[in-house]
Design a binder for these strands. Structure first.
Lengths: 137, 137
DNA sequence: CTAATCTCTCTAGCAACTATAGGTTCAAGA
DNA sequence: TCTTGAACCTATAGTTGCTAGAGAGATTAG
């Protein structure tokens, strides 16, 4: 039996975050001691590890909820799990593409200015004037 | 003189967002008509365009506040503006690197499974078990 | 003058937590 | 057994950058 603090140390998920996940219905409400403190078993530990890992991979709470519901029904087709993973991967790719454009733009802006004072600073100028940009963002 | 709606159409910033920026102190409180409606001049339009553009580049409200304060003092050295832009660029690069690792991992997970039912699905397995991952994330 | 469209303020909601306050319980040492 | 201090409890508010809604007032075109 683990206290919430034990669970936190073992998974790396902070204590208030664990309570938050419970409130959000991501993990089942834990058993309580007589004094109303949460106690977890190995099962609870594993479920939280799963969530931790999925969050690290950037999946939303909502996506994780879907996945945990799926895994509660092992007989169902796993196409849904694939769909969720694929959708997330697509979203990640889109984000990368956008950030790359931004990075290039910021690099361009940064090398544009060799002024000493703000009055001549082309960084601020470039930020003020979208037409100085090399592409859309 | 532009109404808040005019400003919104010209900059692409939504009306409630403009009011929000005013509340946050990013733009000066606009003059008002007798009937208490906001009226903007060309200056206000330009300031909002600046903010819009900087937000598009992903700069935080806080960073933009610093930049607008800088540009109000043209005699100051622009090293600070450079610092802000560089810091942001570094942050963007870090994000890209992390997302790329995620993307690779998600790709790996996705191709791992050819099961039909959730019970055998290796996607869910991989999400549950970090040790199956090829690197840290 | 009237009707349609803005605009006003205020409040609450989103995601995914984090922080604080004020109070209770647990576990270990004397 | 008692005490002390750490850990725990709930509830509420704050974070970021907006967005949505209610209900009331202003403006403008016909």
């Amino acid at each position: 039996m683990f206290s919430i603090g034990d669970l936190s140390r073992r998974t790396g998920v902070k204590v208030p975050t664990i309570r938050y996940y419970e409130q959000m219905g991501l993990i089942a409400a834990a058993k309580r001691t007589e004094g109303n403190q949460r106690r977890y078993d190995r099962d609870g530990l594993e479920r939280l590890s799963f969530i931790r890992h999925a969050r690290d991979l950037g999946l939303s709470i909502e996506a994780i909820r879907e996945l945990t519901e799926l895994s509660a029904h092992p007989e169902r087709p796993c196409a849904d799990a694939h769909r969720i993973a694929r959708a997330h991967r697509t979203a990640v790719r889109t984000k990368i593409a956008r950030l790359k454009r931004l990075e290039a733009e910021l690099g361009r802006i940064e090398t544009m200015c060799d002024a000493d004072t703000v009055g001549d600073c082309r960084i601020i100028e470039a930020l003020a004037d979208h037409s100085l940009c090399s592409d859309e963002h």
